[in-house]
């Protein structure tokens, strides 16, 4: 167990090894480790962000679905209303048309009646005169009595 030059040699070798390790081994490995750590952290970050985005998107989709459902219901409601309205309108129209037709028919009937009355009136007048002529047998001044009978016929 002699202490000798080996002692100094070992110390020098040790110092050189430490220097080499400090200069060429430690920094690149440490840097790689830190970079990987950062990468993993970034990856985890991105993953959580993506999850959040997904949740947001799902929420949005659900909301949109709800909205569209509401809209559809609204549209159906409107359509129903419109249909009812149309039916109502049609019904009204039909009734008006009917009334109008009834009205016109009534007018026509009126007219017809008027015309029949007119005809009847003239015929009645003639008939009355004829009857009176026959009864009175030409003792009557036709012109004088014509006026009288016309007046009478007009009262019909």
């Amino acid at each position: 167990m002699n202490l000798n030059l080996t002692l100094i040699g070992q110390a020098i070798a040790f110092a050189v090894f430490v220097w080499f390790c400090m200069k060429f081994v430690w920094p690149p490995v440490m840097q790689a480790l830190q970079e990987r750590q950062k990468k993993i952290a970034d990856g985890l970050d991105a993953a959580s962000r993506a999850t959040r985005d997904l949740e947001l998107a799902q929420e949005q989709a659900a909301e949109q679905l709800k909205e569209s459902k509401e809209q559809a219901a609204q549209i159906i409601e409107q359509a129903h209303k419109r249909a009812n309205q149309m039916i109502e309108e049609a019904r009204d129209n039909a009734r008006l048309e009917g009334e109008r037709m009834i009205e016109s028919a009534r007018g026509e009937i009126e007219q017809e009646t008027q015309r029949a009355k007119e005809e009847l009136r003239t015929q009645v007048a003639a008939l009355a005169i004829q009857g009176a002529e026959r009864i009175l047998d030409s003792s009557i001044d036709e012109a004088k009595h014509r006026e009288l009978v016309d007046k009478l016929a007009a009262e019909l």
């Binding site: 080996t6 002692l7 070992q10 110092a15």
Partner: peptide, 9 residues
């Protein structure tokens, strides 16, 4: 010598 060399460093 080896161990003492290191420990002296």
């Amino acid at each position: 010598n080896a161990t003492l060399g290191m420990s002296l460093a």
